[in-house]
Design a protein around this nucleic acid. Structure first.
Length: 464
RNA sequence: GACUUUGUAGCUCACCUGGUUAGAGCGCCAGUUUGUGGCACUGGAGGCAGUGGGUUCAAGUCCCAUCAUAGUCCCCA
């Protein structure tokens, strides 16, 4: 093995042309839907000032932020004994003033705060960019990965929630995904449950616990909750709630009685009803899908984080990948930057997982991968030059066309090139063709070859 | 932060309990075909076995360290 073989950092990937074609297909689909719902594109820099990011993701999150060493002599303002006197955390802030973004939400919040004077609210933006996290890579988890966020800030209208459900359906519909579930729940319903079982003080523990339900099973969740100090009585009451089966209506009815004394829970139920009512009105439209794949899931919790209202997660059935999309409503996007009371709601597609799901379901269309359509080949210097004007014209006519860039003694070389690249047509020119102003056009798939007048190349390919 | 897996040709991998010049398939190059790819056949190039130590008469094979790798836990997308 070559001792100097270069490598990539752990947890990063190269995207080959074949993979990029498929990724772009996904991205274009998502982008088109976002835009049709009135979301505007936004990009923010890969790096942010470190203090913008720290403290927003908890202690664990802070450790996973990639910090960028100051340029120049980054040690010059540090005391000689800095390593022992300051500790790594304080020292990091002295020698690294910038860091790679950890998600798209915090940079977005920063952007909103900086531009709050000029933005028109409600502000709807989408943002598709990579983010970086310094944790151990695992299956489907990378240190550099893309997020595709769409958020609305500056309104608490539940229309946003309803539209998110529609957007998810449209994206997956266009991508050809048939079997999926848009799981939806509400933080205040979870709140109400905690209240109803008399464990309000353990609310966040309960959320973290039941979030793992589908992963580790009911018994282990119960065990974990006990370990986290939830009383046995509360756990006993929680069990039938999590196990409750029924459709959306039945669940709402069940919870209504459960939440008799829980204002939080009642607010959550009211939101859920409003969202479903709006979707029912949408359904009056012609050609509206008969099924929005909604699954009101009381066990959906989405970890801790900043969600305060409705929460979403999307699962594709029949594939190994976890959830491919998630999101929710938050009361206060920008509070950490000194601008309180700016509510919003957003969601995000995990395109790496979406990619895996489409691959597994074999849903990528063949067109997503084609590249060059025509390869021109000149046998000698004169015919090479003879090709050039037609190369230009074929491209102008919209055909992805290349001329093999060198004159080869053996024609085998450019022919293999066409073959390996999967280029369907070879256009050959030598002295014979030049003399009569023609080209030999070879169909690389069938092997057929025919003469075509030079001036008729464009129309010839237009029918192919 | 903890643990585990793997590291041999450009790629995917063999080499059984340590024993001569480390193999295969694919790919690459050349030829059979001096203006025609795929298919077939023939030939060829390409390796100090991740790196550094140790044990041994002898190490790709055993031991230690180190680096890389991808997976599990935590957490998250």
């Amino acid at each position: 093995m070559n001792k100097n073989q270069p490598t990539r950092p752990d947890g990063t990937r190269d995207f080959s042309p074949e993979v990029m074609a498929k990724r772009n297909y996904i991205l274009q689909t998502i982008r088109a839907v976002y835009q049709r719902y009135g979301f505007l594109p936004l990009e923010t820099p890969a790096m942010e000032n470190l203090d913008v990011l720290t403290g927003k993701y908890g202690d664990e999150g802070d450790q996973l932020i990639f910090k960028i060493l100051n340029s120049g002599d980054f040690l010059k303002d540090l005391p000689a004994d800095a390593v022992t006197s300051m500790g790594s955390k304080k020292m990091a802030s002295k020698i690294a003033g910038k860091a790679l973004r950890y998600d798209l939400t915090v940079p977005f919040a920063r952007y909103v705060v900086m531009n709050r004077g000029t933005l028109t609210f409600p502000f709807k933006r989408y943002q598709i960019q990579p983010v970086w996290r310094g944790d151990r890579p695992q299956k489907g988890r990378y240190r550099e990965f893309y997020q595709c966020d769409a958020d609305v800030v500056g309104t608490d209208s539940l229309l946003c929630e309803a539209e998110i459900i529609l957007m998810i359906n449209e994206v997956l519909g266009k991508l050809g995904v048939q079997n999926f579930q848009v799981k939806i729940n509400h933080r205040q319903i979870l709140n109400g449950i905690a209240e109803a079982i008399g464990a309000m003080d353990k609310f966040s523990d309960i959320c973290v616990g039941i979030d793992k339900l589908d992963k580790i099973g009911l018994d282990k969740v119960m065990q974990e909750l006990a370990d986290r100090g939830v009383s046995g009585e509360s756990i006993a009451q929680l069990k039938p709630i999590l196990a409750f089966e029924g459709n959306l209506q039945e669940k709402l009815t069940y919870l209504t009685t459960l939440f008799e004394n829980s204002p939080n829970g009642q607010k959550g139920l009211a939101d859920m009803r409003a969202i479903t009512q709006m979707l029912n009105s949408f359904a009056q439209a012609k050609d509206f899908p008969t099924d929005l794949h909604i699954d009101f899931d009381l066990t959906l919790a989405r970890g801790l984080s900043y969600y305060t209202g409705a929460i979403f997660e999307v699962k594709v059935e029949g594939v190994q990948v976890g959830s491919i999309s998630g999101g929710g409503r938050y009361d206060d996007l920008t509070g950490a930057f000194g601008v309180p009371d700016l509510p919003g709601v957003g969601f995000s597609f995990g395109i790496d997982r979406l990619y895996d799901a489409l691959e597994e379901l074999n849903l990528f269309p063949a067109e997503a991968t084609v590249a060059t359509q025509i390869l021109m080949i000149g046998f000698d210097e004169a015919s090479f030059a003879y090709c050039l004007p037609y190369l230009y014209e074929l491209r102008q006519a919209g055909f992805a066309t290349e001329l093999y860039p060198t004159v080869e003694k053996k024609i085998k070389k450019p022919m293999s090139y066409a073959n390996n690249r999967g280029i369907p047509f070879a256009v050959l020119a030598g002295s014979d063709e030049m003399q009569v102003g023609e080209f030999s056009v070879k169909n690389m798939l069938s092997g057929e070859q025919q003469r075509v007048k030079a001036g008729e190349l464009k129309t010839f390919f237009a029918t192919k």
